[in-house]
Amino acid sequence: MEVVRAATLDDWEPLYDLIQRSGFGLTSLRLTKDQLHERLEWSHFAFTRKSERPGGEPYVFVMEDRATGSLVGTSCIFAKTGGYEPFYAYEVVTEQRESEELNVRGSVRSLQLRRIHDGPTEIGSLFLLPAFRGQGRGSLLSLARFSMIAQRPSRFAKEVIAEMRGVSDADGSSPFWEALGRHFFHVDFPVADALSTVSKKFIDDLMPEHPIYWDLLPPAVREVIGEVHEQTRPAKAMLEREGFASRGLVDIFDAGPILHSDRDSIRSVASCRNPKVERGEVPADAKRQIVTTSASRFRAVNSQVHWIDDDHVVLPEATRRALQLSEAEKVWTLG
């Protein structure tokens, strides 16, 4: 059984080893050891804080294989984007143009840079080792985060976004970056990608202010704008089932789509329930759901759940142990 839990400072070195295997394109995991340690410190504060106002703090989750005790995945919630450094994105804008003299009417598309200072909550940094993909583990690692949002909605913005990884090849080369970003930043895509986790000042210094006209980009580049990496398609489909959709924003580096949802409209947030756990037998055909503990000592598993009534459930003994439940404790369920 795998359990998703709040990361601790003891996870520092194994988590660093894990994210080294994440490959190119996962911007928010391009961290040095010191940067990761600082993120874990902030995450510990985030899970244990008393204030309910959203800041820029990260909530870092890890997936642990209970059979071996090793970390096999990670994900994160960034309570708020923007602030001291803005959140940058390109907006795909379509404008109607008309010439009476030529009797010509048409639309002109462009990419226009947006700086968002008072930004939304962002879910991201999701990585799961290939050997553990499938059997609902990716859903657990991703969707468990929504229990945290459902439990403490005031800690998060009213809008939630997810930056999807854009199209790139096995060496980390991005067609969009090669056609656009390289001409202004003069470095390889992975270098800019990693630097953006430390400071975004270079974006303001070098990014062109004027619109980038769609029709001036090569056809092969236009085709990847708003598209996701093949490994990201399952994650995109999962979020779309949760109610996320594109609103015309794409990443400034690889043009991956940025998906949006109103916080309270996310399916798993809206359906989250808080029953009390009772002792009893769990039927073999009991429905499987994601079950989590409270936010302050967060743990989550994918388990069978037997509903006695609207306010009481019975869980398998293995689930109780994995969640470290005490007697008559309440849990949170998704779905």
Score class of each variant (00 low, 15 high):
Thr81Lys: 01
Arg39Pro: 04
Gly134Ser: 03
Phe146Pro: 12
Thr121Gly: 05
Ala79Tyr: 07
Leu71Tyr: 08
Val93Gln: 09
Met63Ser: 10
Ala131Asp: 13
Val92Arg: 14
Ile123Cys: 04
Ser147Pro: 13
Ser139Asp: 08
Ala89Ile: 01
Arg152Ser: 00
Phe47Thr: 06
Arg133Leu: 02
Ile116Gln: 01
Arg39Trp: 09
Tyr84Pro: 12
Gly69Phe: 05
Glu101Asn: 13
Phe132Lys: 15
Leu129Ile: 00
Gly56Met: 05
Phe47Gly: 11
Gly83Leu: 02
Phe127Tyr: 01
Val60Asn: 02
Asn103Ala: 06
Ile116Lys: 10
Ser125Val: 14
Phe127Lys: 13
Asn103Tyr: 13
Glu41Tyr: 12
Val108Ala: 14
Leu128Arg: 00
Leu102Ser: 10
Lys80Ile: 14
Glu98Lys: 08
Ser154Met: 04
Phe78Met: 03
Phe78Arg: 04
Arg114Thr: 03
Glu64Trp: 08
Glu100Phe: 08
Gln135His: 15
Asp118Val: 01
Thr81Phe: 00
Leu141Val: 09
Leu129Cys: 07
Glu122Ile: 06
Val72Pro: 02
Arg137Tyr: 02
Pro58Ile: 14
Phe156Cys: 02
Cys76Lys: 09
Arg133Trp: 10
Glu122His: 06
Phe146Leu: 02
Lys158Thr: 13
Leu128Cys: 12
Arg105Tyr: 15
Thr48Ser: 07
Pro120Val: 08
Gly73Lys: 13
Ser43Glu: 05
Gln135Thr: 15
Met63Pro: 09
Pro153Leu: 14
Leu71Cys: 15
Gly69Asp: 07
Pro120Met: 06
Ala157His: 03
Tyr84Leu: 10
Thr121Gln: 00
Phe61Gly: 14
Ser154Asn: 00
Ser99Arg: 06
Gly56Ala: 03
Glu41Met: 07
Glu85Tyr: 13
Val104Pro: 01
Met63Tyr: 11
Tyr84Ser: 15
Arg97Met: 02
Gly119Val: 01
Thr48Arg: 10
Gly56Phe: 10
Ala89Gln: 09
Leu111Ala: 11
Ser154Ile: 13
Tyr84Thr: 15
Gly134Cys: 14
Thr94Trp: 12
Pro54Arg: 06
Glu52Tyr: 06
Glu100His: 04
